[in-house]
Amino acid sequence: MLRRLIVALAFIATPAAAAPDSVTVIGALHGLHAKEPAFDYGALKAAILAFKPDLLVLEVRPDELAGRTATPGRPEYPAVIWPLLAETKVAAVAMEPGGETFKEMTGAAGLAFDAFGARDPEGVKALSAADDAIEAALLAHWRSPAQTQNEATAAVTSGFQQLQFALVGGGLDKVQARWDGFMAARVVEAVRAYSGKRVLVLGSYRNRAVLEAAVRQVAPGRVVSPAPWLEAAK
């Protein structure tokens, strides 16, 4: 009797793998995984495994994916994704630009920030303080993995980005639009190439809404919320 009860409880607590032809978008927390007990690195890995993707679309450059290299600002890759790929052999594609395109876009963004720092050092300090305050507020708000993916999170991070564009100037908004457009195009290509398969897009909590919107434009019927797999991974 006890054995049957334990098996039954385990079945209830673990969601079934996503249906074939499903696409979900998860926003990783980067360094905040280490500060958010409700959604640590282990929970991120568990959620991915529970979804059982046929393809992972990753927020890395092609060379980072090929070499399983360090990924500054995205510690979830050496902590979780590179070992997971080695364990499971699941297919993966990169969504960030590489090569000369990467150099061009990051170079343009760097010039905009350099000019901003030269003309408004107090503005730089204020923007950095605002970023820190937003992270602290989000950590206070989040009480479950699914909350890290909610509308409040998307609204706050989008608002901060608009403030950043207004303060920094220098065409930063156009560079960001190109970057986001590049990644969205790679996501759309992957979703179309894996028709009938489960696709998990791993972006950031700061751009999850943008990436999901790109999928909804081409495959609205395939998009599913990541909540069931995130909550089961707590």
Rank of each mutant, 00 (worst) to 15 (best):
L5S: 10
V7Q: 13
L9V: 13
A10G: 12
T14G: 05
D21S: 13
V23D: 12
I26N: 10
L29E: 11
L29K: 06
L29Y: 13
H30D: 02
A34P: 08
A34I: 14
F39E: 12
D40C: 08
Y41S: 07
G42Q: 10
L44Y: 09
A46H: 14
A47W: 14
A47I: 14
L55D: 05
L56M: 13
L58E: 02
E59C: 01
V60G: 01
V60P: 00
P62W: 00
L65V: 00
R68V: 00
T69K: 00
R74Q: 00
Y77H: 07
P78M: 02
A79W: 02
L84D: 01
L85F: 02
E87K: 15
E87V: 01
V90C: 03
A91S: 14
V93N: 04
E96S: 03
G98W: 03
K103M: 03
L111S: 11
F116A: 10
A118P: 02
D120S: 14
D120P: 03
K125Y: 05
K125P: 02
K125F: 01
A130F: 10
I134C: 06
L138N: 09
H141P: 05
W142F: 11
Q147T: 06
T148D: 02
T148K: 13
Q149C: 00
T153S: 08
G159Y: 04
Q164M: 14
F165E: 10
A166W: 04
A166N: 11
A166P: 05
V168P: 02
G170R: 15
L172V: 05
D173T: 01
V175H: 09
R178D: 09
W179S: 09
F182L: 11
A184Y: 06
R186I: 06
V187D: 07
V188E: 09
Y194I: 09
Y194C: 11
G196S: 11
K197W: 06
V199T: 15
R208W: 04
A213P: 06
A213C: 07
P220W: 06
P220L: 03
R222I: 12
V224Q: 07
P226E: 05
P226I: 06
A227V: 05
P228T: 07
